[in-house]
Design a protein around this nucleic acid. Structure first.
Lengths: 195, 195
DNA sequence: GCAATTTCTTAACCTAGATTATTAGTAAAC
DNA sequence: GTTTACTAATAATCTAGGTTAAGAAATTGC
């Protein structure tokens, strides 16, 4: 497993000494999971945050009618967790599984806390990380509130062209909040329009 | 203006010395605004975070059809800002105004940064604050994706009974994402059901 | 205290997107 | 290399919630 990705991810916001870097890396657990395997099941208590080195994960909830709604997609260089379960130590409402064979680095909550007290700079790093994630989630919520399905679909194409290519379109539908049937219709309409 | 509310808000997560407390309070700017006055206009660059001591604010965006969508409601003891504009220094996509006459404490971004370097504990405080806000926003996004209007309406009644009483119902409609007309219909249906 | 504005209610009608069903393509498993 | 299981396309039908309109009630301002 390579650590260059996670170290450059961190170096964007804080500078670590060699010693701090080593401490941090020593806390990480490497994990490989195969497509469709779960990292977290609903009702479990989430014990770690995962950094995606390779592959792609998703977190999603299942509604009363059995439909999946994707809260987060995590391609390489992203962090993913059930934040609510992690901080409240309550059972997760989310599932997290792999959309492709993936390589992860896990940071367990207790080590995470230890890291915060040993290297306070990490408070800063995760404060900034969470602020950015918050701003992104705000913008997604506003899209849900103010845009129609076609606009959300086009927004996704523009923002995540590589996911657009790598993910099955039913996953994209579950992310933008439409049925796969309607997503297929929008795709056909778009193609027709472009010609 | 009283500082007890903001100090207890902070004391929930970090302990400050008297000196740190004084430094923090010295950075705050008191501001009173009247109902309907703006704290931030779309396209301005957001320069501060506001803590609500009294009253109630909202942040919202206006969609292409002129409809308002409320991103956040901030009753007393809550923080509010256009986070995206604040961290990216880009023009705000949100408006922030007062739903009632309100008393605020403003923390300007430059003082905020100063606070982070002078008292690193505040990194921790705002990290935790943002994590909690993130978890709340996740849950709200999942509600948008998986619940129908009636369920979101009932969810709001249960979670925020006091806002339910103090806010005009068109604001509640703009928060849960329905038209005022449909919100009125749901209210009538609920009353009928309860009898 | 009254006029002006804003908010709320009700109801008829409309539409974006869901549902259901069928058929076809694609990839994985044996 | 054929069976099994996902994944996608298309189309007919249905419905939750939006739109429009018009009157009633509540607030606000002077």
């Amino acid at each position: 497993m390579v650590y260059s990705l996670i170290l450059s991810n961190i170096a964007k916001h804080i500078q670590l000494t060699k010693k701090e870097e080593d401490l941090f890396l020593s806390l990480l657990e490497e994990k490989k999971i195969r497509k469709k395997q779960f990292l977290l099941h609903e009702n479990e208590i989430s014990k770690f945050t995962a950094f995606v080195n390779k592959g792609c994960l998703r977190s999603y909830s299942i509604d009363r009618n059995g439909f999946e709604h994707i809260l987060q997609l995590a391609p390489p260089n992203w962090w993913i967790a059930d934040l609510h379960s992690l901080i409240s130590k309550q059972p997760a409402k989310l599932n997290i599984d792999a959309l492709e064979d993936s390589e992860l680095l896990l940071l367990y909550r207790e080590d995470h806390e230890k890291l915060f007290s040993d290297v306070p700079k990490f408070e800063r790093f995760f404060r900034i990380l969470t602020e950015n994630a918050m701003a992104a989630t705000h913008s997604r919520l506003l899209d849900y509130m103010g845009l129609n399905a076609q606009e959300r679909y086009e927004g996704f194409c523009n923002r995540y062209p590589s996911l657009m290519r790598s993910l099955p379109q039913k996953q994209i539908a579950a992310y933008i909040g439409v049925t796969p049937e309607f997503s297929s219709k929008m795709k056909a309409d778009l193609l027709r329009k472009q010609k």
